[in-house]
Amino acid sequence: MGNALSAQQVSVAFDGLKALSNVTLSVPRGEVTGLIGPNGAGKTTFVNVLTGFQQPDHGRVLLDGEDVGHLKPHLMRRRGIARTFQSGRLFAELSVLDNFEVTGVGLGLSRREAAEKAEAMLDWIGISSLAERTAGGLPYTDERRVAIGRALMLEPKYLLLDEPAAGMSAEEAADLVRLIRRIATDVGCGVLLIEHNIGLVLSICSHIHVLDSGEVIEDGPPSAIKASERVRHAYMGTQADAEGEIL
């Protein structure tokens, strides 16, 4: 499995309760891969496994063919796997620029080098005006963009976005889609997008995996996911008709 971040037969259980069961999934470089599923499906647990926050009970995590499933989170970062969190988790008392610089120094850069890199990244994301703002006081949408920019400071090969559009308006979500496309195409990053906004996932992902109760119940291109009755039933439940418009 070269040039991909992949999970092979990954299983995780908490106190005997299965959170993930034999999940196999691959995130190729330069593409946006979607991961959807109802609440409690195991999406965040899966992201935690791919980023070193959760050791799998069984299975392997391969980074461009190398087994990295045993590495600690900060070492996973240094190998090129970055992530954002559902709740933002910005360094609230630091400025936006400092939030970016932390990632630079985490990579081993000096503060001067980290500052230069942070400024360039702020420019690239288009949020230079926020540089001196305190991260703890940012509006929700800006917080999400800062979280993505901070993760990109790592120059990751793979970026895992955990519900980046939660709470965004349609216009803000459209901006986010443009940003994610740039990350995949301009940076060449492999993006795993975990998101409840199905329309957004279908519009941007080349391949989508559907998790339900810790198992992958379907995977394929957006058209296949759209057409899958199993996905409709498992993911949408009785709301399938109501959501039909989105699909």
């Binding site: 980023t51 926050f53 600690k72 989170p73 900060h74 970062r77 240094r78 970055a82 992530r83 969190f85 988790r89 910005l90 360094f91 932390v102 990632t103 120094v105 985490g106 990579l107 901070r150 993760a151 400071m153 790592l154």
Partner: peptide, 9 residues
């Protein structure tokens, strides 16, 4: 957690 995710030991 975020610091760890940013590569901080």
């Amino acid at each position: 957690i975020a610091a760890s995710a940013s590569g901080v030991d």
